[in-house]
Simulated scan of single mutants.
Amino acid sequence: MTLPTQRSQPSSLSRLWADSLTVFWGDWLDLRVRLVQVAASGLISPLIYILAFGLGLGSTLDSVAKPTAGENYLEFILPGMVALSSMVISFGGTTFSICGDRLFTKTFEEMLLMPVHPLALHLGKMLAGIVRGMLTAGSVILVAVLVTGKIWSFLNPLFLLVLILNCAVFAGLGVLVGLNVKSLESVGIYNNFLIVPMSFLGGTFFDVATLPVALKLIVSLLPLTYTSLGLRAAAYLPIAQFPWFVIPVLLVMAIAVSAVGAYQFSHLQD
Rank of each mutant, 00 (worst) to 15 (best):
V88G: 04
G133W: 03
L251W: 04
P10G: 09
V169H: 01
L51G: 13
D30Q: 10
L146W: 09
L215H: 07
Q241L: 15
L215D: 09
G70A: 04
G149C: 01
K216G: 14
H267A: 14
Q241G: 10
L119C: 05
G54F: 00
S14Y: 12
A259P: 00
Q6I: 15
I239L: 14
V187I: 15
T105E: 14
T210H: 11
V175D: 10
L21F: 11
N180T: 15
S90F: 10
F108Y: 12
P67C: 06
V213P: 08
V162S: 07
Y190F: 15
F91H: 15
Y226G: 06
G149D: 00
S153I: 00
G149R: 00
S228H: 05
L224I: 15
L43M: 11
Q9H: 14
P10W: 11
V88R: 08
F53E: 04
I151S: 04
F24Q: 02
F193K: 10
F159E: 00
A254Y: 01
K106C: 07
G188M: 08
L74F: 02
F200E: 09
V143A: 01
L160M: 10
N156W: 06
A168C: 07
A144M: 05
T95S: 14
G133P: 02
A18L: 13
W25G: 13
L229I: 12
V246S: 08
I89Y: 06
P212R: 07
I239Q: 10
S258F: 01
L135W: 03
P238S: 06
T204R: 11
M134D: 06
R102T: 08
G138N: 00
W152I: 12
M81P: 02
L103I: 13
G56Q: 03
K66H: 12
G92H: 11
I151H: 09
L112A: 10
I151F: 14
V252M: 10
L251A: 13
A18T: 13
H117P: 01
F154N: 00
L43H: 07
P243S: 05
Q269I: 12
S12V: 15
V187R: 10
P238G: 06
S8F: 15
L16M: 08
V213H: 13
L31D: 10
L74D: 00
F24S: 06
G26V: 13
V181C: 07
G70E: 00
I255N: 03
V116N: 02
M81A: 06
R32L: 09
L47N: 01
T22A: 15
S86I: 07
L165R: 03
H267F: 12
G133Q: 01
D19M: 08
G92P: 02
L74I: 03
P4C: 11
L119E: 06
L35S: 08
F170K: 07
S12I: 14
L176M: 11
I141K: 03
L51D: 08
A171K: 03
G178P: 05
F76Q: 03
G42D: 04
I50H: 05
T94V: 11
A83L: 00
T210W: 08
S8P: 12
P243Q: 05
V162E: 00
L29A: 09
I130Y: 01
L201C: 11
D19C: 07
A83I: 02
L135G: 03
L35R: 10
